[in-house]
Simulated assay, not measured.
Amino acid sequence: MHNLKHETLAVVEPWVKNGLWEAQTISTEHALREAAAVSYLIGRGYQPQHAHQIVESWWHH
């Protein structure tokens, strides 16, 4: 169980940090929505960077 916790937190950490930065520059609501969407896509099997690119494309055409 400890490995699952460590692995999960390691995968989401970059998106948490990105969300904290975006919360300061855009909005907390947007940042949470984006971090959740990236995490969801990662859970669906997308590579983390690809998931982030997809989500970013939704707001930045």
Rank of each mutant, 00 (worst) to 15 (best):
Q53L: 06
H61D: 06
G45A: 15
H6M: 07
I54K: 02
G43C: 09
I42C: 07
H30Q: 05
H50E: 13
Q49I: 12
G19Q: 01
R44I: 13
A36K: 03
K5T: 12
T25E: 08
N18G: 08
W15P: 00
L9F: 03
H60N: 13
L9I: 03
N3D: 15
E13I: 08
L41H: 06
K17R: 13
G43D: 10
V16G: 06
A35K: 00
E56G: 11
M1K: 15
P14I: 03
V55N: 00
H61V: 05
A36M: 05
L20S: 13
V11T: 01
P14K: 04
Q47A: 14
T8W: 06
V16M: 09
H50I: 14
Q24H: 14
W15S: 00
Q24N: 15
E22I: 07
R33Q: 05
V16A: 12
H60S: 09
E7A: 05
T25F: 06
T25H: 12
A36P: 02
S27F: 12
N3T: 14
Q24E: 15
E56S: 11
E13H: 06
N3A: 15
L9D: 06
G45I: 12
Y40Q: 13
H50P: 11
A35F: 00
I26R: 07
H50A: 12
V12K: 01
W58A: 08
V12T: 01
E34V: 05
L20R: 15
H52I: 07
H6G: 04
H2M: 13
K17V: 09
R44M: 15
L32S: 11
A37C: 10
V55A: 01
T25D: 08
S39A: 15
L41C: 03
A51N: 08
I26E: 02
W21H: 13
N18C: 07
W59A: 14
Y46N: 06
S57N: 03
H52D: 05
P48C: 10
A51W: 08
L32Y: 10
I42D: 04
Y40G: 09
V55K: 01
E22Q: 11
R44T: 11
K5G: 05
W59F: 09
Q24R: 15
Q53E: 09
L32F: 12
N18D: 09
H2K: 11
T28C: 12
H52R: 08
V12Q: 00
V11K: 00
S27R: 11
S57E: 04
Q24P: 11
V38D: 07
P48L: 03
E22W: 04
A23V: 07
V55H: 02
W21I: 06
R33M: 03
A35M: 02
W59Y: 10
V16D: 03
H50K: 14
A51K: 06
Q49L: 14
S39C: 13
Q24V: 15
V55E: 01
G19C: 05
S27N: 09
A37Y: 03
I42M: 10
A10H: 01
W15Y: 04
H52V: 09
R33V: 01
H6W: 08
N3S: 15
R44W: 13
Y40T: 09
P14S: 11
N3M: 14
E29M: 02
H61L: 06
A36W: 01
A31W: 00
Q53M: 13
